[in-house]
């Protein structure tokens, strides 16, 4: 294949079409093959809910906050490992473009949830922190599913 200023011949164009077909086919195969393991989103959403909810019950000691943070980290690492084992691949969250809004919203949910949970607890409303944690977990669940829909759409998947 040549890409000089001269008009390309028919064989070059056919080869270019075949190359583009290869790229498209691989994109569609990736979209079809990458699957989120069962319970992946649910487990992380639950860990987020517990993490934020505990912020309202921490009292004078940070011990439970540290435990909840550690639990969240363990659950996250476990689910990432399951994803890698299921797919033989890893797809990170940050991909720019249309994903930026979803990633930003996820950061707001997590950071905002932690701050609000701590504030609720410090004002004597620990159950409010639990509710905030539940909402944050649900938000994360929805954002994660939205991210995957965008991913499949970007790769041109039909499902």
């Amino acid at each position: 294949m040549e890409s000089s200023g001269e008009r390309p011949d028919r064989s070059s164009v056919d080869a270019a079409r075949a190359a583009l077909h290869t790229v498209r086919a691989e994109q569609e195969r990736t979209a079809a093959q990458i699957q989120v393991p069962a319970g992946y989103d649910e487990m992380i959403a639950l860990a987020i809910g517990v993490w934020i909810g505990v912020e309202g019950w921490r009292g004078p000691s940070d011990r439970w906050s540290v435990v909840a943070t550690g639990l969240f980290a363990v659950v996250l690492a476990w689910q990432v490992r399951r994803f890698r084992e299921r797919n033989g691949a890893w797809v990170g969250g940050w991909r720019g473009g249309r994903f930026a809004g979803v990633v930003a919203a996820t950061a707001v949910v997590l950071i905002g949830g932690l701050i609000l949970g701590r504030v609720a607890g410090s004002h004597g409303h620990p159950w409010l922190a639990v509710a905030i944690g539940a909402v944050a977990g649900l938000c994360w669940f929805g954002l994660s599913r939205l991210w995957m829909r965008i991913y499949r759409a970007e790769l041109g998947a039909t499902r």
Binding site: T22, E26, Q27, I34, N87, G88, A89
Partner: peptide, 23 residues
């Protein structure tokens, strides 16, 4: 220009990492 190289880069373009056997 090679189909295999192009296909491999197309796979790697849409994921962050792929394991050897899967690839």
């Amino acid at each position: 220009a090679s189909t295999n190289r192009l296909a491999m880069m197309a796979v790697l373009h849409d994921v962050d990492q792929v394991e050897f056997v899967t690839l």
